[in-house]
């Protein structure tokens, strides 16, 4: 039984589709990244999964409970942990009192162990907490009843780098212990560190669903080369370089070929510095799902609207190889 199975999940607010036909599944024991820029509809999906808002159409099952079946959904929530993006605690209560309160609702067998990793000042009122302390209290709250499945919405926001690392290690150990984690974020690098598979949502639509390694392989590498002396443009550039920015003695580009050929190419030039890294989410979006007739990215452009719901779109999000097969990824070579 998948931990989550959504089918054409749609939420409309008037003319705006916050989620538009979102279909995906998250298997038990998987760490699933739900990636998208702010405002893409990630939180909307999560709030439908938890039954906080009702889908306009489509449906979803969480741990086998249909989100339309309130009773069943309430029952499975004892197996779920939730770390919301905005943590609404009783600000006048101390951290300890907040945890006591949640413990009465769902148990807290792992509280002590979690508080060794995440250390909010328990005797202070939550209202005085920093963003990081608030987040840590939220993490303890989400995991302390030892749930089988945890939904995390922007879990690292407010955490300092040390605590972000700690969270990453903790999530890895949870995954190894067989827990299912739904990790929603707008930061590619943190998703790639912890997730096995990723769904990318943009303007309410799921535009990709695939293994994180495949995504990164197909997204290319962001390369910055500092040259010792200016080079001939014709000589330096290859077909595998896209988004090229040329400066006097520097070149920035996204490389879509394999690493070996890039290195072989670069050694031919006298370089003073080379930086090769994974692209930012925004860069990936820039290349993802360009229009079929040209290179315009799919966005809110009404001209793109009629494609929605057409037969060709039916497997949207349901087939991880879809994007590559259709060759809509601009950087991909035929």
């Amino acid at each position: 039984m998948p931990a989550i199975q959504t089918t054409d999940l749609t939420k409309r607010y008037g003319d705006v589709a916050a989620n538009d036909g979102v279909t995906f599944s998250v298997e038990s024991g998987e760490v699933f990244g739900y990636l998208g820029p702010n405002g893409a509809g990630k939180t909307t999906t999560i709030r439908m999964l938890l039954g906080l808002i009702r889908p306009t159409s489509g449906t979803a099952e969480v741990l086998g409970a249909d989100v339309h079946d309130r009773r069943a959904l309430t029952a499975v929530k004892s197996e779920i942990g939730y770390l919301p993006d905005t943590l609404g605690f009783d600000d006048h209560l101390t951290g300890r009192q907040v945890l006591d309160y949640f413990a009465r609702m769902r148990g807290d067998e792992r509280r002590g162990e979690l508080l060794e990793l995440f250390t909010p000042p328990l005797d202070q009122p939550v209202g005085t907490y920093s963003a990081g302390n608030r987040r840590m209290l939220g993490i303890v709250q989400a995991f302390m009843h030892d749930p089988a499945f945890v939904i995390m919405d922007e879990p690292t926001s407010g955490l300092d780098p040390l605590k972000q690392d700690r969270l990453r290690l903790f999530l890895e150990s949870e995954r190894d212990a067989g827990k299912t984690i739904f990790f929603s974020s707008h930061v590619l690098s943190e998703v790639q560190q912890v997730c096995d598979r990723v769904g990318i949502i943009r303007d309410g639509e799921l535009v990709a669903l695939e293994d994180i390694d495949e995504l990164l392989a197909r997204s290319g590498k962001e390369v910055r080369v500092q040259l010792a002396e200016p080079v001939d443009e014709e000589d330096f550039l290859t077909d595998d370089m896209i988004d090229v920015e040329l400066f006097d003695d520097a070149v920035h580009f996204t490389y879509t070929g394999d690493a070996q050929s890039l290195l072989e190419h670069l050694v031919r030039f006298e370089t003073s510095d080379v930086d090769i890294g994974n692209p930012q989410l925004e860069t990936i979006f820039k290349h993802y799902y360009t229009g079929e007739s040209g290179d315009e990215p799919r966005g809110r452009d009404p001209a793109n609207e009629p494609r929605r719901g057409e037969p060709a779109d039916e497997p949207r999000g349901g087939d991880s190889a879809n994007a590559s097969r259709e060759g809509r990824f601009r950087g991909e070579r035929p």
Binding site: T74, K77, P84
Partner: peptide, 9 residues
């Protein structure tokens, strides 16, 4: 949001 993420109707 948090309250209703707990098993309570």
């Amino acid at each position: 949001d948090l309250t209703l993420s707990y098993p309570v109707s």
